[in-house]
């Protein structure tokens, strides 16, 4: 069983949902982001999503855009992101790691070589924002061969006629983009989630995680109450940014402030019994 399936099975047995915190690789620098990654499991992360920096993140709001730019400014590349995962795996072989990014750096790396190297580094799944179902054959075979889950995005605009197509190539879990918008901007209401999640469940047995616009512990709790997991990204990055020096370098509290927030989110998520 893959790490992702195993983790969701365990959570189901425990009767709770998953907290999936996000960090951008190498933001604001390699050492700080590595320390944040290392600390996340103990702080209560159930899965971890790592953003792969890209110059043109067209689905991201200002917070993740700037995170990517900080990372690129200190020289982040796809090779570095994979190396981070490999290093993390020397001390943690259980927690699932999902990479989120855009297609071009993967194409540039070479899809076959990328899937081989990502799997060998300990990556479990891929979320490729600009690879919709219509173009999914580009990666499907290479990902499957290497046991990498392809985690598909489902949006509020994905209607019931389209859902079977989108879900057909999905594995691991389904990522529900809870708003029509970019990351870190608006938040879906509990009522909207209560309407949307059962609609997706009609078509899949995969776990469903909610992302885009989940910021506070209360919102994370609402997300896992309606679905199976909550992805929190921009709120963590915003908090980390508040700890940076005026020059944009990591401050003394940068790691702690993010991990404290992960702990608060985890507490709220764990309080929801399913």
């Amino acid at each position: 069983m893959s790490r992702i399936a195993a983790r969701f099975a365990t959570l189901k047995a425990e009767g709770r949902g998953a907290l999936i915190p996000f960090l951008e690789a190498w933001d604001p620098d390699p050492a700080t982001s590595m320390e944040i990654l290392r600390g996340m499991p103990a702080a209560g992360a159930d899965l971890i999503e790592i953003g792969c920096p890209f110059t043109d993140p067209m689905a991201d709001g200002p917070t993740v855009q700037l995170a990517g730019r900080r990372a690129l400014n200190v020289g982040a590349t796809m090779v570095h992101t994979l190396a981070m995962v490999r290093e993390f795996r020397t001390e943690n072989n259980e927690i699932p790691i999902v990479l989120m990014g855009y297609l071009n750096p993967i194409l540039s790396y070479g899809t076959a070589r990328f899937c081989t190297d990502a799997a060998a580094s300990g990556v479990d799944g891929l979320i490729i924002v600009d690879l919709p179902s219509e173009e999914a054959d580009l990666m499907a075979a290479d990902a499957a061969k290497n046991g990498l889950d392809i985690i598909r995005l489902v949006a509020p605009t994905t209607d019931e006629a389209r859902l079977p197509l989108v879900l057909a190539g999905s594995s691991g879990f389904v990522y529900y983009v809870s708003i029509t918008g970019v990351t870190g901007t608006r938040t879906a209401s509990g009522a909207e989630l209560a309407d949307a999640i059962p609609r997706i469940r009609k078509f899949t047995d995969l776990p469903i995680a909610v992302g885009f616009g989940v910021r506070s512990p209360a919102q994370a709790a609402a997300a896992v109450a309606a679905a199976d997991g909550a992805v929190v990204a921009s709120a963590l990055i915003d908090n980390m940014v508040s700890s940076l020096t005026p020059e944009g370098k990591a401050g003394p509290d940068s790691v702690r402030i993010v991990l404290d927030q992960v702990r608060e989110l985890a507490e709220a998520v764990r309080a929801v019994r399913k």
Binding site: M58, A59, L103, V129, D130, L131, P132, S133, E134, E135, R152, L153, V154, A155, P156, T157, T158, D159, R162, V166, V177, T180, G181
Partner: peptide
């Protein structure tokens, strides 16, 4: 599929795809 040879296509986020 919107391709000219191997070029073109529809590489957008799912929100925009419909």
């Amino acid at each position: 599929r919107g391709r000219f040879g191997e070029f073109g296509g529809r590489f957008v986020a799912e929100t925009l795809m419909p």
